[in-house]
Design a protein around this nucleic acid. Sequence first.
DNA 1: AAATAATACGAAAACGATATCGTAAAAATA
DNA 2: TATTTTTACGATATCGTTTTCGTATTATTT
Lengths: 338, 338
Amino acid sequence: MKINLKDLAKELGISVSTVSKALRDSYEIGEETKKRVLAKATELGYTPNPYAGFLRNNKSKTIAIVVPELTNNYFIQAISGAEEIAQENNYHLLIYTTNDSFEKEKSIIKHLMNGRVDGVLLSVSSTTSSYEHLNELTQNGVPIIFFDRICHEIETAKITTNDFACGFIATEHLIKNGCRDIAYLSVSEYLSIDSKRKQGYLEALNKYDIKIEESRIINCGIDDKMNTQKIKKLLSSNKIPDGIFASVERLALKVYHICNAANISIPESVKVISFSNLRTADLLCPSLTTITQPAYEMGKEAAKILFKHLSKRKNIILNENIVINSVLTIRNSTKKTS
Amino acid sequence: MKINLKDLAKELGISVSTVSKALRDSYEIGEETKKRVLAKATELGYTPNPYAGFLRNNKSKTIAIVVPELTNNYFIQAISGAEEIAQENNYHLLIYTTNDSFEKEKSIIKHLMNGRVDGVLLSVSSTTSSYEHLNELTQNGVPIIFFDRICHEIETAKITTNDFACGFIATEHLIKNGCRDIAYLSVSEYLSIDSKRKQGYLEALNKYDIKIEESRIINCGIDDKMNTQKIKKLLSSNKIPDGIFASVERLALKVYHICNAANISIPESVKVISFSNLRTADLLCPSLTTITQPAYEMGKEAAKILFKHLSKRKNIILNENIVINSVLTIRNSTKKTS
DNA sequence: AAATAATACGAAAACGATATCGTAAAAATA
DNA sequence: TATTTTTACGATATCGTTTTCGTATTATTT
């Protein structure tokens, strides 16, 4: 049932090497023979064993994409973009989720160490605190491209959005719509995206002469219950903020849930803005003002750069920062209320 | 840099086969030697070349999951479940999207034909109209497990939810809340899930002596613009339905958008219920009554069955229908209005 | 002590495709 | 016609493992 080159060769009465070359359209083989081989190959439904070629050529036609979670629309869209480019290049895409666990990330990276993939697209886990595993991977000749949650310490290409500017814009938008006491929901102290967004937030406060209150910076994490607690506390004090800037989607949704339960009206009592790729942002109650990242494009771009590099066969990827801007979409959750 | 068995053997002054066996903890090798080998292996950071082993053993430690689209929360959650089980089994997961294209599905399946993967988890495309490509794959010894969008014609394990019952329940729920003119938004004529849900819908109409109107069954498809047109037409006539049962999430969202734009109030003018795995269903305006499929569990179950089969090394998967029930979550979009 | 069994290792053949050679036969040149 | 070149193909090594055998050494049994 499973046909290989040897079978084909025997069937045709010619040698294995001739068949191989004929199928790869080598100049060494006559047109006549090529046709015969091709015909027989399709007739018997021959498809090459991929792993044999990988072993021989040390190329796997496979890349991996490693993301922290799948319950985040950003990553889904990025994966979608990467997958499209992979298919275009006749590559296969392995998918791994770290669940924001440093240990899991290390374990996954270790598995990718020995030529299983030709390259890796990575968004680091929010608990990743050292980068040796990533360094080791690149030193083993497997190129990494970072997207969104990048790692500055590694020299390679990085795809990000304009996090700082958007942090500023989001905060400024809240201020312009009347907020003077704005909380920032941070997603992780380790992530560069978070610190950049936070810096934008701080910069905006500064520009508009709003005093920075450390207590208004809520450090959330992976633990859902802890996050709930912290945000509940923020929203149940006798002086709740009049604006909330969530650094990621799930924190904004958490705010919505808590406000719903506590009968806090958005945007009247508190305005909410968030980085988010939610498709239903405009259908929410109230519709959510978002900073939407070009997730799909970022995934595509990351994959494109990887393939550009793979085709060049150079062993080092130059440090390169590609920034694709996000867009602010104003909706009702930040609506000005007299 | 890249260490292989031969390097290790040379370094240790013993043969390749001994090293190999030592690493695999063979009884043929003395304890002393095993320790020496293991120590050297970790010292030099040896990791086996996966493809060499695959070639030898004809096993790839890799499975594929093929889904129609990534913009559907159901599939994301199913992938997530499958990925978890794959990681548990130390397997790798390749991901492919067909974009609901029959041709793309065939092309992907062809790529999986020759041992690239040990098995496939598949949800067929909504335009898939013949199954030869799938038959060919199984005949090539690659087992397929179907989930959600199954293919009856192939003998194997299939994971579904109780589509018929849920179609009935959803429709009955609308009826009990006062609907007498219920439209069904069909996602594809080819899909078994659709026909089962529709049958449930029809059965419920029957039970409550509601006349079935062919014009109330809207056959949607992949073409977004066409869908918009059809639903707009449905909602702009002078006699719009008082209930809508959407067979998939995106059609429900389409209804929401159109109702928003046309100022048709849900649930007063029309009640809406939908199969959906939307995380924000309860935050929508109004919150959406859903039939929620156990997507994560279905993905896990599909993967589990595949691995059970792979470990047994039997060449045929018995026909098996595993049904995991969905749950109805009643929210405001179907709220009774006097 | 002689025969047998157990232990610990090495040599070599796979797995399937590719690429480097080598070489007949045919074609082109001298 | 004799020589060189081209064309078209085959034999074989190779990629890095695993695994089957074969075998030398030691241990056990009679």
